[in-house]
């Protein structure tokens, strides 16, 4: 997995609440057996019309935001389906961080597995960041994971919380499975004990 340390990029404002994973990547693109290539269909039904023409009003189609690396979104981002195709599509488009007041649980976890940093901020901070994002391409937002800060284009800095283990994995680009495999002894011991206590499992 790619490391996430510092990011300076364009932030796109997406002030809708309850953006679900069906919106992020509709089901017709779930029929792939690969992880790559989904960026072109990110937010497909909002981004294109039926004929595949771009909707000029959608934020990521506007010239200022075509290279966006950060999304600032409304409450409860990523709700609904567990499809990891949602973070795959975001990552493939180039999005490396999403900022909202809240995220749905499964989406939140899926982000960390794909080098994307989801940042939870209180409403008043999201409001400030949303305004900053609305400034367009000239306004670059900075995110420093080590320091746990987001800095607006005006230099205003806000701190955020992140789970220490998840932070460690992102900073170092670590693969969870490899880490867990090192604990195989503990899993063996647990499994033996559990199958004695609950043999029907």
């Amino acid at each position: 997995m790619e490391k996430f340390e510092k990011l300076s990029g364009i932030a796109a404002p997406l002030p809708l609440v309850n953006i679900d994973t069906d919106m992020i990547i509709p089901k017709q693109f779930l029929k792939t057996i690969k992880r790559s290539g989904l960026g072109v269909n990110l937010f497909d039904e909002m981004r294109y019309d039926r004929e595949g023409n771009e909707n000029p009003d959608f934020v990521l189609n506007k010239p200022a935001y075509r290279e966006a690396q950060i999304l600032v979104a409304g409450d409860n981002f990523g709700c609904g389906s567990s499809r990891e195709h949602a973070p795959w599509a975001l990552a493939d488009f180039g999005i490396k961080a999403v900022i909202s007041t809240s995220f749905a649980d499964i989406f939140f976890n899926n982000c960390f597995k794909n080098g994307i940093l989801p940042i939870v901020m209180p409403q008043e901070v999201v409001d400030v960041l949303m305004k900053d994002a609305e400034k367009g391409a000239n306004a670059r937002m900075e995110i420093d994971l080590e320091a746990q800060t987001v800095t607006t284009s005006d230099g205003e800095t806000f701190s955020f919380e992140v789970d220490p283990f998840k932070k460690h994995c992102l900073l170092n680009g670590l693969d969870d499975i490899g880490l867990t495999m090192e604990k195989v002894g503990a899993i063996d011991t647990f499994e033996a004990k559990a199958s004695a206590a609950r043999p029907w499992v």
Binding site: R83, E84, N110, N114, T180, M181
Partner: peptide
């Protein structure tokens, strides 16, 4: 529910 990376994690471990 879990994502696909976690599916792989559970399959392996």
């Amino acid at each position: 529910g879990i994502g696909t990376s976690e599916v792989e994690h559970v399959l392996a471990t």
